[in-house]
């Protein structure tokens, strides 16, 4: 892969690859480890060319054992390295849950700040790519319910670069959720700008009627829905959270107060999910500014379906517009 000029159009996959390369060039303590990340460049090619440039030790093909990978990364971080772990797919990160919850998330706290763990755990997540079972989970609810972890998810190639750089630079562990169906989406990337700090939502589209609050793989769907809503007479704002933990309450509050109606959209299951948290927070903080209850458009509360049925499960434009229609416009 050639060196990037400061600004060019890239896919999200290329942006992630560039972020890893730039981080490894700038900081010799950044080490990658995972399954097939070396010679192959990862099954999604996110680590393409990195073993060749930085050597097999800094882009390490490990044995197939996710708890072992993350546990090893913990020890490496304890010795001063800055490991970036790749989990091959969302559902295959589950074996590492104990290491993540009991150690990665807690080590700083357990040691009164003496052993911070600057580990980034990259996880391709979500559906929409026709994957067979265990390849399409949206697992963010497990991670956001674990204090000590930051959880971020980019929805654009530019954010993929900036957020990954910020995650690797963070002295706290970050679960970095990569919406795999957006790996091939393109955007202009300027790698010369300052790294965006973790924790800020961004308004992707201004609007006056209602706001769609979303993140990761659902952002393009929401933007499409907002476009389609114009014909119905609705001027929808779209807010991209980018960071699930820390949660940008301030920006969410501002937007909701200015429009008075909100729909949360994500493709993971609804019950006990991120949308429930957002709806609760918005109700607690913006109750008197709301003209309607906060609604959720999410995946159904089912195990991720077979690929030929997944389009029924994933929130689409129509389902989002149906929710918008229910926002008590007659009042």
């Amino acid at each position: 892969m050639t060196t990037m000029t400061p600004t060019r159009t890239v896919t999200m996959a290329q942006a992630l690859n560039t972020a890893l390369r730039d981080a490894m060039r700038e900081d010799a303590s950044v080490h990658l480890l995972g399954e097939d990340v070396g010679r192959l460049g990862g099954v999604f090619r996110i680590t393409d060319g990195l073993a060749a440039e930085f050597g097999e030790q800094r882009c390490l093909d490990t044995p197939l054992a996710e708890a072992g990978i993350l546990g090893t990364a913990i020890g490496m971080a304890m010795y001063g390295l800055r490991p970036v772990v790749e989990m091959q797919f969302d559902a295959f990160a589950y074996p590492a849950m104990e290491q993540l919850i009991s150690h990665v998330a807690k080590m700083r706290n357990r040691t009164a700040g003496r052993l911070p763990l600057p580990i980034t755990v990259r996880i391709p997540y979500g559906g929409g790519i026709g994957g067979v079972e265990h390849h399409s989970d949206s697992s963010e609810a497990y991670y956001v319910a674990t204090p000590g972890l930051h959880v971020v998810t980019p929805a654009t190639a530019a954010d993929a670069y900036g957020l990954l750089r910020a995650s690797i630079a963070s002295d706290d562990p970050v679960v970095f959720l990569e919406p795999k169906r957006l790996y091939w989406s393109k955007a202009d990337l300027d790698t010369t700008g300052a790294v965006e700090p973790i924790g800020r939502a961004v308004l992707r589209r201004p609007g006056r009627s209602a706001v769609l609050i979303t993140y990761g793989p659902s952002l393009p769907v929401c933007l499409e829905a907002a476009e389609a809503a114009v014909a119905e007479g609705w001027d929808l704002a779209v807010l991209d959270l980018r960071s699930l933990v820390p949660f940008d309450d301030a920006t969410v509050e501002n937007v909701v107060r200015s429009v008075g109606r909100a729909v949360v959209v994500h493709e993971s299951t609804g019950f006990g999910g991120m949308g429930a948290e957002i709806a609760a927070r918005v109700s607690e903080r913006c109750f008197h500014h709301l003209a309607a209850p906060v609604l959720r458009v999410t995946g159904f509360d089912i195990p991720y379906p077979a690929p030929m049925l997944e389009h029924h499960h994933l929130p689409g434009v129509d389902r989002i517009l149906d929710a918008v229609a229910k926002l008590q416009w007659e009042d």
Binding site: I74, M78, Y79, P83
Partner: peptide, 16 residues
């Protein structure tokens, strides 16, 4: 959590 410290020892030794 039983034996969960074992991979940490490996990672630290590897880094050293």
């Amino acid at each position: 959590p039983l034996a969960t410290q074992a991979p940490h020892a490996v990672g630290l030794a590897h880094a050293a």
